Simulated assay, not measured.
Amino acid sequence: MTLRGVLTTTVAAVLLTGTVACTASEPASTATSGGPVTARIAELDPVPIGEPPTPALPATVRSFDGSEVTVTDASRIIAVDRYGTLAQTVYALGLGANLVGRSTSASFPAVADVPNVAAGNGSLSVEAVLALRPSVFLTDTTSAAPAVREQLRAAGVNVVYFDPDRTMAGVVPQIQAVADALGVSDAGARLGQRTSDEIAIATAAIPVQNPRPKIAFLYLRSTAITMIAGPGSGADSLITAIGGIDAGTAAGVSEPFTAITSEAMIAAAPDVLLVMSDGLTSVGGVDGLVQVPGIAQTPAGRDRRVVDMADAVLLSFGPNTGRVISALADAVYGSA
């Protein structure tokens, strides 16, 4: 089966169940049958592994910055990272009620009323963090600079850093690391196993494609910024997980994200474009995307095959990873 064809559809992929629903007025179609396929994958709440666990504290863990941290109280948790992964994990561990602060990227519905500790420019506000009186602050080394850590620690806040890289291999270890820091290691083991099982089920259900589709992840911020993902971006491992070929890596891109010229885009020749929802909006939707130089000359651009995912879903690699793989595969290949 190839990526050619003539049907048009708008697809809403629901992460909670992994199902795909088509609009009532349009026939179902898939990226493998070709034609214009616009798929939007939204963000839903992580599913708690069980009843709220009772943390076994104190818990001493090695923070990703190399320091040893002893957490004595997990009643007031703030979780801040680039993709909302830490807040998702806290919620899925059953400690959602203990989450008192989050970053902008943690945007799933259940935390809509949890205060955002980002400043107006999106950077971390130490004042906002301290105002929430956290007992523990979970973050990564790209979201909170050492100076921020020292300010928080000087104020008596326990700060635990986690690996900022988001990869398939790192999903379960990071879930366990968060659970260990919060004194709920058993819940972490159960959540890690459930997530691993969901990933295995999702990948096993992906149809074999010959040839495999070339999928390009584009980072968009208005028409002024167009970057293609390559090795180490996180998008490359997600594309591989659904049986695709990362178009950026295949085209010789050597960095996680590289500004791309129209000539390079044409040469990459992706069959499907994968973008973040906010980025797609910033260029004026699919109509605006195909006006970006080089896009219209690619197979994906000519046939308007675009999958957009909520920003905090696409590269979060947290407890929803199995559902993300299922939803993305359904969007690219069609619901089973």
Score class of each variant (00 low, 15 high):
4 R>V: 13
9 T>A: 11
12 A>R: 02
12 A>I: 02
20 V>Y: 03
21 A>T: 14
21 A>V: 06
27 P>W: 05
43 E>T: 12
51 E>N: 04
51 E>P: 02
63 S>W: 00
66 G>A: 06
75 S>Y: 01
80 V>H: 05
86 L>W: 03
96 G>P: 08
111 V>H: 09
113 D>M: 03
128 A>D: 09
131 A>G: 02
141 T>G: 15
145 A>G: 11
151 Q>R: 15
152 L>F: 08
153 R>H: 03
157 V>M: 03
163 D>V: 11
164 P>M: 03
168 M>T: 12
183 G>P: 07
192 G>P: 13
194 R>N: 15
195 T>V: 15
202 A>Q: 12
213 P>S: 07
220 L>N: 13
220 L>C: 13
227 M>Y: 10
229 A>Y: 12
230 G>W: 04
233 S>N: 09
235 A>M: 10
235 A>H: 08
242 I>K: 12
252 G>W: 01
258 T>N: 07
259 A>G: 05
262 S>N: 02
263 E>V: 02
263 E>D: 10
264 A>V: 05
268 A>E: 00
274 L>I: 06
281 T>G: 04
293 P>V: 06
297 Q>D: 11
319 P>E: 01
321 T>V: 15
321 T>S: 13
321 T>A: 15
324 V>M: 12
332 V>T: 10
333 Y>E: 12
